[in-house]
Design a protein around this nucleic acid. Structure first.
Length: 421
RNA sequence: GUGGGUGUAGCUCAGUUGGUUAGAGUGCCGGGUUGUGGCCCCGGAGGCCGAGGGUUCAAAUCCCUUCACUCACCCCA
């Protein structure tokens, strides 16, 4: 019988790794809370229409990557491929905009896209998703990017490289799109196959084609900045000047485009060279038309999504700060000592001391080995001899120093020792 | 969806031109005299050599199929 394995592209996160996950999550809560964002938890399953309307029908995500199924022959449901649409759905469904026009929300959880797995890309992956709804002030764009970089630094990335661009808005982008299509017409045969297709689906994507021939052609193409409306232009300038007030380094990348249709004006990314082809660890931008598109009032928004696995992959291997090593190992010898050790062990745990003991009646040597393997800070040696004299041995596993401590009041003594370090 | 690479012990990998009971390191369990971890030494457990078929006296090794993993294209976080 073949054992059952996990589904392709779906990963177990083992105890060895979860320390890092908890660390990153706690930093996210800490930083986002300081900036006035509050957590929202939303379902993993949504009606399919939410994504076809939100993300854009002709995007790759919607066209071929969604886990969609017909629920009991009644309606189509989809495992969410991203979080923004769901957050906005919840925001509208509970009329959060009526209670307060400004909502600052974040959520952390799994997303699902049926792509071919590779380094940094899984079918179930996790995102830290942040959304700021109800403000179109360019300072909020800068503030969100500042918070993002601050968060990345606080988990240990040294110099996150922030790239930014403007994508224009619903009033100026169509004109630009038209200009690009005109420019590319007649040059089809010099473009790669993918780009020939893109001319009709999403001509802006030709800008970030890695094919050299396409890059050469596109170099002479019209630039968005020539077509952008005054409003978008001013917005872009003001975002930059706000970033400069924080001395936040950023690079303008006019070739950056976004894969989701809803983005307008500011778009940004944080990339890394350590992840191979999947180099984006954060993607985000403004989406001033999306809320209206999803049936709500005309409310602006901006947000970003951090690829959790990609971020984790950049963190140092296994610093002690991610681990939860036991503070004490009780090495009990013989049945009498065991009888004493068992309640002591659990009482200490209830006082918050990470305590382990042996249940197999092993030799002292073997118990000490286990204490060492678990990286325990102290070992408490408790045998019949100690029980009769009332003096136990407390061994510091780091230094090897060992000293007698009184059986009376042992819980308090141990707690004092552990807190003193 | 399209290419390339790889599947041998829990993990990382050897395994010659096909040739007896398939190896190492690491991890695990035990031991190196009475009750003390790390280093060292000794012993033990643990493999349908990814799965199925074929060639052959003989297959981990050659051929076919399939599955899985992985990297890249694509796409994106």
């Amino acid at each position: 019988m073949q054992p059952i394995t996990a589904v392709r592209g779906f990963k177990d996160i083992l105890p060895e790794e979860t320390g890092k996950w908890q660390f990153v999550e706690s930093k996210a809560h800490e930083v986002f809370t300081a900036f006035g964002f509050r957590e929202i938890r939303i379902p993993i399953l949504e009606k399919t229409d939410l994504f076809t309307r939100g993300i854009g029908e002709s995007t790759d995500i919607v066209e071929k990557e969604m886990y969609t199924f017909l629920d009991r022959g009644e309606e189509y449901l989809t495992l969410r491929p991203e979080a923004t649409a769901s957050v906005i759905r919840a925001y509208l469904e509970h009329s959060l905009h009526a209670a307060d026009p400004v909502a600052k929300l974040y959520t952390i959880g799994p997303m699902f896209r049926r792509e071919r797995p590779q380094k940094g890309r899984f079918r179930q992956f996790h995102q830290i998703d942040v959304e700021l709804l109800g403000l179109e002030d360019p300072r909020t764009d800068a503030e969100v990017m500042l918070m993002l970089v601050h968060f990345l630094k606080s988990v240990g990335l040294s110099e996150p490289s922030l790239e930014m661009n403007t994508l224009g808005c619903l009033s100026c982008r169509p004109a630009f799109r038209e200009a690009i299509m005109n420019f590319l017409r007649g040059k089809e045969e010099r473009l790669c196959g993918d780009c020939q297709r893109r001319i009709h689906t999403n001509p802006l994507r030709v800008f970030d084609c890695k094919n050299e021939g396409c890059a050469e052609i596109i170099r002479e193409a019209p630039q968005l900045l020539q077509y952008i409306c005054k409003d978008c232009h001013d917005h872009f300038e003001q975002v930059q000047s706000a970033l400069n007030t924080f001395n936040l380094p950023f690079r303008i990348n006019t070739r950056m485009v976004r894969g989701l249709d809803y983005y307008t004006k500011t778009a940004f990314e944080v990339t890394t060279e350590f992840l191979g082809a999947q180099n984006a660890i954060v993607g985000g931008g403004r989406y001033d038309g999306l809320i209206k598109e999803l049936g709500g009032p005309d409310i602006p928004g901006i947000g970003f999504a951090v690829g959790f696995e990609r971020l984790i992959a950049m963190l140092p291997a296994d610093p002690a700060s991610f681990r939860h090593d036991p503070q004490l190992f009780i090495a009990a010898l013989g049945p009498e000592a065991q009888k004493y050790a068992f309640p002591l062990c659990n009482r200490l745990r209830m006082k918050g001391i990470l305590t382990e003991m042996d249940y197999l009646g092993k030799s002292l040597k073997s118990q000490m080995k286990r204490a060492d393997k678990l990286h325990c800070r102290y070992a408490l040696i408790l045998g019949d001899r100690e029980l009769s004299t009332g003096k136990l041995e407390l061994r510091d596993m780091g230094t090897g120093a060992q000293e007698p401590i009184q059986l009376d009041g042992i819980e308090e003594t141990i707690i004092d020792y552990i807190k003193a370090r």
